[in-house]
């Protein structure tokens, strides 16, 4: 392996999504404003809070690469947190409950994919509909109330861990690595690129566009399911509103990370930085003492700015 010279470094620097720099600037900014910011504990907390969003963002990134957005992912998160607690309350053993949850989330994704690709309903209408259906299902399952179950596994996953990182962070990172790996190294990843870039490639190579598209939604659903379980561990309860708005933060994370809604472009690896940016901003605002009431607006504006930037940047790029 040759030593990276300055030209390589420069090229790498240009390839990094802007979110990396913004995140670093934000970290410095908040670090200067608050005491004890640069502690391992604090960093661990930020990552822990970011874990569920990272998992959901992995799924959303894959959908974004096919030029779609899955609006139902937040609802799947809520549904899974409620469903898991419910199963545990019913006395289902833990592994079986987890398996059931993941199965259900994959099923939710399957429904999205089937309706969107087989019935040819635009993705956003499909997922807008299922968003409300899954959300209502979550509300109905728990009677619109937060439901509780005490189990040591929650604490273990969310608070204990390894190398100052909780197990939830490791799980999310595993999901992230898997996604990046699949996108880069697997046939599935190439399919996703083709769905976003040029569907003709699939047909001319003898593949099925519909099957590929369904698979994408199943994957996204599964990732949202993992996100739901992680949320559940953190809040140690099943909350039908736990995933509210997460689908959109995930779109933002994907776009901030350098994925593009145009022609299946961008690097899924950047999603991690998109998630970090959002979480650093969220946590930092809180730590600096910005009242929680400002946070949503600030985050909304940042997210929107990212999307606008994406649109303008890609447009000038393509011309």
């Amino acid at each position: 392996m040759k030593r990276p010279d300055t030209a390589d470094m420069k090229r790498l620097a240009r390839r990094l999504p802007p979110s990396v720099y913004i995140t670093i600037i934000l970290i410095c900014f908040f670090g200067l404003l608050t005491d004890n910011y640069f502690t391992l504990d604090n960093m661990g907390v930020i990552l822990r809070q970011a874990a569920p969003l990272l998992a959901v963002s992995c799924g959303q990134t894959v959908v974004v690469l096919t030029q779609g957005t899955d609006l139902s992912l937040g609802s799947i998160v809520s549904l899974m947190s409620v469903f898991w607690i419910l199963l545990l309350n019913l006395g289902v053993p833990l592994p079986a409950a987890v398996a059931c949850c993941l199965l259900l989330s994959a099923l939710c994704g399957l429904i999205n994919g089937w309706v969107a690709s087989k019935l040819k309903i635009p993705v956003f209408i499909t997922t807008l509909g299922t968003q409300n259906i899954y959300k209502s299902a979550a509300l109905l399952l728990c009677g619109s109330m937060t439901i509780y179950h005490s189990h040591p596994v929650f604490r273990t996953v969310a608070r204990e861990g390894f190398l100052h990182l909780s197990w939830s962070v490791w799980i999310a990172l595993a999901a992230y690595s898997l996604t990046v790996f699949l996108m880069k190294k697997s046939r599935f990843g190439k399919m996703v690129r083709a769905l976003g870039g040029n569907e003709e490639a699939i047909a001319t190579s003898g593949g099925s566009v519909i099957k590929s598209r369904i698979l994408v939604f199943v994957y996204a659903g599964l990732m949202a399911g993992i996100g739901g379980l992680l949320v559940c561990c953190r809040i140690e309860s099943g909350n039908p509103n736990a995933g509210n708005g997460m689908e959109f933060s995930a779109v933002a994370a994907a776009l901030l990370g350098g994925s593009s809604l145009r022609e299946g472009g961008g690097d899924p690896a950047g999603t991690l930085f998109g998630v970090l940016l959002i979480q650093v901003l969220k946590s930092g605002l809180m730590q600096v003492g910005v009242s929680s009431i400002y946070q949503n607006a600030i985050i909304g504006i940042v997210v929107l700015a990212a999307i606008i930037f994406d649109a303008i940047y890609r447009r000038t790029d393509s011309e």
Partner: peptide
């Protein structure tokens, strides 16, 4: 066939495009 309209996936590299779906 070599099609008149390109069947390239823009974000994949040449190797990935050549062996698309037959990797």
């Amino acid at each position: 066939a070599v099609y008149q309209e390109l069947t390239m996936v823009p974000w994949l590299n040449a190797a990935e495009n050549i062996f698309f779906n037959r990797e």
